[in-house]
Design a protein around this nucleic acid. Structure first.
Lengths: 195, 195
DNA sequence: AGATATCTATCTATTGATAGATAGATAAAG
DNA sequence: CTTTATCTATCTATCAATAGATAGATATCT
């Protein structure tokens, strides 16, 4: 687990926000210099190249994403509630104009290095796998319909999240995202709960 | 309906492909010069600025998209088959590494002018509206379940297309996209046909 | 002649990146 | 303990390449 000092962390923070709001190719080292208050040469001291910076940003994001999902699994007993929390988390970021980093870098994948492209593949595989496990658990739990194919439903859920965030930002309609995803979860449920 | 001469058309073609493969901020006027074989000054002769070029590319795309959907409505009698054809069309482009132009420019929307951002909103609204109408027709037709909410299903379908294309490109798995979307259509159908 | 289309040549600003200096912390040697 | 050496983190200054854009000459067609 790579660990960064204060400056590098701030650089990663700003870079992540810039990527998630404007995109990888739409921000410069000078933008970072302005935001963080260190010279561009200092950025290169920590991250040799721009693709290296993106790689580090994504590595940290991926790790936090894994950690967040693990904690969710431990802290929240019901599968339905776990998925709902994921939706709210994504929806919160979408509301701030912050697209999923995985989705954003997918758009810019041609500008990234091979290692980061590989990490992107693993990101989606891991996310889908977590959702699939959660849905399977929900089935065994009596929360979700027995007819559900967890893998299929998980792929759909993740793709819906990514596409939904994209369109949410374009529409600027603060209800679009949750109105899109929550009914989808509800449709999987045996007893259409809440909403 | 704006009409372009041969050079401008080639410029629009190349720009569209570049945007859909690499992204708006990842290509330059020099790339276009190389591909089309005219000087960058000639590009500026037709399109004053880069955002103007993007606007023209998207306007043409949007128009062809509308036309394509209209023709589909006229040529294909069954709603199910219309949606399936849309999926194959998107899937074909995804297979070529060509993301949906609407989705791609959504990622880069911060770099576009206000008019193009507005056109993006209208693009998704129109697409969703067409899908919704198609689903409503399919319901009246006895193809789709009566319980379906056409608007809700249409939003889901479009978001699934966009998210699916994004992830498809990352995975490089030629089956991912259609394996994702076709079951979704099938699930709407009264009589789970084909596949 | 005028309109249309393309080129040459060039501009300014910005890009990611590098070289080398410097101050301060840390460690090793005497 | 002090001195010497090395390492860490940052800076200044600058590079070559490229970005989008412009002015004005030139050719072609009506």
């Amino acid at each position: 687990m790579t660990t960064w000092n204060a400056t590098a962390s701030k650089l990663l923070d700003s870079a992540e926000t810039l990527i998630r709001t404007k995109g990888y190719n739409a921000f410069s080292f000078r933008d970072l210099q302005r935001e963080v208050g260190v010279k561009t040469s200092t950025i290169h001291y920590y991250f040799a190249t721009k693709p290296d910076l993106a790689a580090a940003v994504f590595e940290r994001f991926f790790q936090e994403h894994r950690l967040g999902l693990d904690q969710l699994t431990m802290a929240v007993p019901r599968a339905y509630d776990r998925l709902e929390k994921v939706v709210h988390f994504f929806g919160h970021n979408a509301g701030l104009g912050r697209f999923c980093l995985g989705g954003m870098l997918s758009s810019d994948r041609e500008s990234l290095d091979e290692a980061t492209r590989g990490a992107l593949v693993r990101f989606f595989a891991h996310f889908e796998s977590w959702v699939s496990t959660t849905i399977a658990y929900g089935k065994s739990n009596g929360e979700f319909k027995d007819s559900l194919d967890p893998d299929q439903a998980a792929r759909t859920f993740v793709a819906l999240l990514e596409g939904g965030m994209l369109i949410h930002r374009v529409k600027g309609d603060s209800h679009y995202f949750s109105d899109l995803i929550l009914p989808f979860i509800d449709q999987m449920a045996l007893i259409p709960s809440k909403i």
